[in-house]
């Protein structure tokens, strides 16, 4: 599907720049040109498609859908809706309050809070572009399972007593309908959103792929297998810990880890790292402290963290 891009990359690198085909520099530049063009094309297409779907599902509508659901089915729906609903840690609190006041169970709300940042379109594009459809599908599938199960587990722990009392004082007062949208508005919204996201991430992608290309060209194959191969039990939890403070740079981190996988880091470890980068975010935890007790945040982070670690081990065992 991307064969013409490979031709373009080859022509630019070896034809226009006149770099020797077998050289390290040549292979690094070829890799960089191919990967960045592929990712930007994918970004434009996938973000446009996802934000068109999204224009039908504003957070307020998602809340309406979830408010009538109980556990289990609610957790599954919340996780699925989390995929297409945008999430910025700025909105974590209003989202949380809004869900609770509409009667969405806390466990279901947590499923949404896990899925929404973890499975987002930028991460998806990077995964498809750099790892292929299969790994992207595994990431989405296991991400959904983690979101559903974490929400159910947290729901069972009776989290109501660990939420600040004022959260429950609210009654649903006004329902914001949002502006009615015609197809033209939806296209305009999707186009604007796509441009916004690309503007926000392009630099990270260039840097990430640039460093990745350097690793690709200059670091020997399987160099990292000794430290982070599938037989190293500590690699997965370590990757998850490192991922927690790295929230905002998912666009730059994925090209990096893709290069590291090639040098011997096991696939499950890589998946766990990416999930931790997107789903566990330190700034989000700080913001959530306004509405819940630290104990609940610790429970939230541990349940999701354990889920991610198990996923890492599972795929280290399966994908050899």
């Amino acid at each position: 599907m991307f064969a013409p891009l490979q031709l373009l990359a080859d022509w630019l690198t070896y034809g226009l720049f006149r770099i020797a085909p077998q050289s390290l520099l040549g292979s690094a530049i070829d890799f960089f040109v191919f990967d960045t063009t592929k990712i930007f094309i994918l970004l434009a297409v996938i973000i446009f498609a996802v934000s068109t779907i999204r224009s039908f599902l504003p957070a307020e509508k998602v809340r309406m859908i979830l408010s009538r659901k109980r556990a289990y089915l609610g957790n599954i729906l919340a996780s699925l809706l989390g995929i297409v609903t945008p999430f910025c840690s700025c909105s974590a609190i209003p989202l949380f309050l809004g869900f609770v006041e509409a009667g969405v169970p806390l466990g279901v709300t947590f499923s949404f809070l896990v899925a929404s940042p973890m499975i987002n379109e930028v991460a998806l594009v990077m995964l498809v572009g750099l790892f292929g459809w299969q790994i992207a599908a595994i990431y989405i599938g296991s991400g959904l399972v983690i979101a559903v199960v974490s929400g159910i587990v947290i729901g069972k722990l009776k989290p109501e007593r660990l939420v600040e009392p004022f959260v429950f004082e609210h009654k649903l007062s006004a329902a914001y309908e949002g502006a009615k949208m015609a197809w033209r508005d939806r296209m305009q919204y999707a186009g604007g959103y796509t441009v916004d996201i690309i503007k926000r991430v392009w630099l990270y992608i260039l840097i990430g792929v640039g460093v990745g290309a350097w690793i690709h060209g200059y670091i020997p194959m399987d160099f990292l297998a000794r430290y982070a191969g599938p037989d190293k039990w500590y690699a997965v939890p370590l990757a998850v810990l490192i991922g927690i403070p790295l929230y905002s740079n998912a666009a730059g981190v994925i090209p990096l880890v893709s290069a590291l996988t090639e040098k011997g880091v096991a696939m499950g470890t890589t998946l766990a790292f990416m999930m931790s980068v997107t789903a566990l975010s330190l700034p989000e935890f700080m913001i959530l402290k306004k509405v819940m007790k630290t104990r609940l945040i610790v429970i939230f982070a541990s349940v999701v963290g354990v889920g991610i670690i198990l996923t890492g081990y599972l795929f280290n065992a399966i994908l050899k």
Binding site: R63, C90, S91, I93, P94, S173, A174, A175, Y176
Partner: peptide, 8 residues
Amino acid sequence: VAMGLMQS
């Protein structure tokens, strides 16, 4: 939240 919104 009182305005019925969930975004910031």
